[in-house]
Design a protein around this nucleic acid. Structure first.
Length: 184
DNA sequence: TGTAACCGCACTTATATACAACGCGTGT
DNA sequence: ACACGCGTTGTATATAAGTGCGGTTACA
């Protein structure tokens, strides 16, 4: 199979405890935390440049975005929980939830594509291609819960999968369809 | 001053999250 | 007629891909 790279992983979880956000921000190092309730209701926490962003809400729910892998998302989630426990904001977080909600992949068909022909081959009902609106073709497979954006260069984005396997299978299935119609 | 080159940005997709503001419906 | 609740929309976050647009810069 042609290679696929994960470029973004999004996960969400809950601390199961309400958080006083202004207090939390006061206790955090201002270099890692940002909070502007007039602009957005969540607190942004980033440990350092090029690491995932964690957004924390009043309800205790939080999101991890911008991770490069499932492992990295979990690693920074753990680091976040440890920090809150050290600060005394939370006590026992061992049974709190955390789920990967979205994977974004970049793949390459390694061959330029005729998107008009591709729309027909993949099925007009499953595709959207409006080059004046956006240069990529949007493909929504009926049997996979993810979306593929295919570009004339052959570069492809797979978004919305909740597992790496789902995305990989969707990309492989699409390539198979292209072969069937000899579009590749 | 004109033109060319370049930069930054919005376009679209998914997803969790929350809050404001809006429309619309129903009940009082 | 008014109040209340619910649904929806826009706001913000990350991330890649292409195209086109506007603005800025540089040079002749």
């Amino acid at each position: 199979m042609r290679h696929m790279d994960v470029v973004n992983v999004v996960g969400s979880g809950s601390l199961d405890v309400e958080i006083e956000l202004s207090q939390l921000v006061d206790d955090l190092d201002s270099s890692i935390a940002d909070y502007d309730p007039d602009k957005y209701p969540g607190v942004y926490l980033r440990f350092s440049d090029d690491t995932p962003l964690i957004t924390i809400y009043r309800t205790g729910k939080y999101i991890v975005t911008g991770a490069e892998s499932r492992e990295q998302a979990h690693r920074y989630r753990d680091r976040f929980l440890n920090l809150l426990t050290e600060m005394g904001v939370t006590s026992d977080t061992s049974n709190t939830s955390f789920t990967i909600q979205n994977y974004v992949f970049v793949a390459d068909l390694e061959k330029s594509q005729n998107l008009e022909a591709l729309a027909i081959g993949l099925g007009l009902e499953q595709t959207e291609y409006e080059p004046e609106q956006f240069p990529g073709l949007v493909y929504r497979p009926t049997d996979a819960s993810c979306v593929l954006l295919i570009f004339a260069s052959g570069k492809t984005i797979i978004a919305g999968a909740t597992s790496e396997e789902t995305a990989q299978r969707a990309f492989a299935d699409m390539q198979e369809t292209l072969e069937q119609y000899q579009l590749n």
